[in-house]
Simulated assay, not measured.
Amino acid sequence: MTSQLERTYGLRSKYWYLPETSLSSTAQELFFKSSPDNETQQFLDESNSISSNYFWQTVRNIGVMILSTIYSKTDINGITGFGNMFLFSESQFASFLEIDRQSWTSADKNVLDLGAGNGDITAHMHSFFNNVYATELSPKMRNRLVSKGYTVLDALEWANTDVKFNLITAFNLLDRHYSPGALLQDLWKVSHRSNCLVIVSLVLPVSHYVEFNPNGTGTRPDKFLNVQGRTYADHVHHMIVNVFKPANFEVVKWTRLPYLCEGDMNNSAYYLPDAVFLLKSLNKDDGSASPRTATETESNSGSVHNEL
């Protein structure tokens, strides 16, 4: 599949699923290798079709130019349906969470997707969870989420909901959030109350940018994530040790996936290197926690599947 992606688009996909440089022993022990599949190829094929349609791209560019005088880029994508994204297929999602699709029952399960955008990535989880909840600060994107049948919670008050979830996700939100620390606190609070796992993904190396800031108009968060170094591998290590651990989360496993966006006249698709972390909230003992290893988690719970 990798050779097919490179042959079709000239994309160097060798490192889409593997870090370019050596990982720390901590990160290596928790690494789960994902692989490309037919759904990944299908997204790229559809993106290539859109990119090569000159008439459509011309109309798109004119529309974006006009709308950009009034709306943010995210709102424009919400209005027009442009900028569709792809992070994982249903099969990749099931594999990462060790879901046996033969025995899995979705009827009584709830998932919450924070910062869900237009719901493209959320849709790949829908078959596993009958009840889909989402948050989104963009009004135009919220309309799209509602049109897809998702229950949209208040983006600033979601942590106060009484709903208990089987999984909470925050895809590519932590580095776009106006207060990453507050987001992690809320994730711990709700996941601990729900006794559920959390998935957090972000593009590495970390680059903060806040588009919707309830506290003002700046594009910088109130506090930057505590990561060091310049490489993808450096930031994976520091996310595990300096970010998630102090926030009372154990990293059960993590994987690397390509964060893909449909193309334009210049490129058939765009790619960013994502790290996807599966987290388990830890008990707080007088403000501190002693994280268990991934091996201890597996021995106590049997499998990730059993915790969903």
Rank of each mutant, 00 (worst) to 15 (best):
D274C: 14
S288V: 08
A27L: 05
W104T: 00
L30V: 04
K284P: 06
T74H: 08
L153W: 01
W104M: 00
L279A: 02
D234F: 06
S95R: 07
H238K: 12
D45Y: 05
V190E: 01
D113E: 07
H208F: 05
L278K: 02
I199R: 12
S24P: 03
H237C: 05
W158L: 11
G83V: 02
S147H: 03
T161L: 00
I99S: 00
A233H: 00
E250W: 13
N213T: 10
F249M: 12
L257K: 02
E136Q: 06
M85Y: 15
E157C: 11
S47Y: 01
S281W: 06
N48S: 14
T169G: 05
N248Q: 14
G149I: 04
T295A: 15
L153R: 01
S103P: 12
S194C: 00
A123C: 02
S49T: 15
E298Y: 15
T74Q: 08
V241A: 10
T74C: 07
F86W: 05
F129V: 01
V203N: 10
H238E: 13
Y178I: 02
G149C: 04
Q41T: 15
R193K: 11
S91M: 07
D264N: 11
N53C: 04
L260N: 07
S127R: 09
R193G: 09
D175Y: 06
S24K: 02
Q42P: 05
D234Y: 05
K14D: 14
T169E: 05
Y271K: 13
W188Q: 09
A269T: 02
I76K: 02
H126R: 15
P205K: 02
T8G: 15
N160Q: 12
T69A: 09
L23A: 07
T40D: 14
S3E: 14
R193S: 09
L278Y: 01
S106V: 08
E307V: 09
N130W: 06
S207A: 09
T219Y: 15
